Each structure stands twice: as C-alpha cells, then as structure tokens.
Amino acid sequence: MASFIETGGAWSTMEDVLLCECWVQISHCPVTGSTCTEMPLSNRWKLFNKELGKWRDALAKVRGNHRSGENLSNKIMQAQMWFGAIG
C-alpha cells in the first residue's frame, strides 16, 4: 500500500525534500534565535497566497487578451500593470 507522500501526484521526491528543508530554514528565526510556530508561518503564507492569486489573475487576463506581435516581455509588463491595478 502506497503512503500519502508516495501518492502526492506531480511532486517528486526531490521536491518533497526541498520543501522540508525550506520549512526547517524558515521556521527558525536567525535574528532572535527563536523558533517560529506554525501559526505565524501560516499567517504569513496567507498573505503570500493572496498576492499570488492576484498575480495569477493578472497573468490569466494577459493570456486572454492576446495581441498580435506581443512578446513575453510585453505580456509580463502588461500583467505587472494589471497586478498593480488589482492591488
């Protein structure tokens, strides 16, 4: 029987390891020497997640508004403008 981690879909073992290493690194505050608990980390993630959602929406708007002759740089600049307008 496969474990939950083994059935994680598109996540590779290396990605799982990197995620764990990152969690260990960010859960310890080098300035104060204290350990961050799950709640502050979770609250911080919620802020990031909200902003990532706005960026995703801006990119989706760019994809849906394709103009002839636009390159990737143009699309990113347009997404950045929409991202600023969303926030």
Results as ranks from 00 to 15, higher is better:
38 E>M: 06
75 K>V: 00
75 K>A: 14
48 F>P: 00
54 K>N: 11
83 F>D: 06
49 N>S: 15
74 N>S: 00
15 E>I: 01
35 T>K: 15
24 V>T: 02
59 L>G: 01
55 W>F: 15
72 L>R: 13
9 G>W: 03
64 G>C: 08
2 A>N: 06
21 E>D: 08
80 Q>I: 09
3 S>T: 13
31 V>S: 09
27 S>Q: 05
24 V>L: 06
29 C>K: 02
45 W>N: 07
51 E>K: 13
78 Q>T: 05
26 I>C: 08
19 L>R: 13
27 S>P: 00
42 S>H: 14
68 S>F: 12
47 L>Y: 06
46 K>L: 14
72 L>D: 13
70 E>T: 03
59 L>D: 00
24 V>I: 06
33 G>K: 05
29 C>P: 00
44 R>G: 08
4 F>K: 12
37 T>G: 14
39 M>W: 08
73 S>R: 10
51 E>S: 14
38 E>S: 09
23 W>G: 02
49 N>I: 02
19 L>T: 06
57 D>L: 12
18 L>K: 12
63 R>P: 00
14 M>L: 14
60 A>V: 05
47 L>V: 10
23 W>Q: 04
3 S>Q: 02
39 M>Y: 11
64 G>Q: 04
37 T>E: 11
6 E>G: 07
68 S>Y: 15
77 M>S: 04
83 F>G: 04
32 T>I: 01
84 G>P: 00
30 P>C: 06
15 E>P: 02
84 G>T: 04
54 K>Y: 13
10 A>R: 13
80 Q>K: 15
87 G>T: 05
67 R>A: 11
71 N>C: 07
11 W>G: 01
55 W>D: 03
21 E>A: 06
62 V>C: 09
26 I>F: 14
28 H>A: 03
21 E>M: 11
17 V>S: 05
23 W>F: 11
8 G>L: 13
31 V>E: 09
16 D>Y: 11
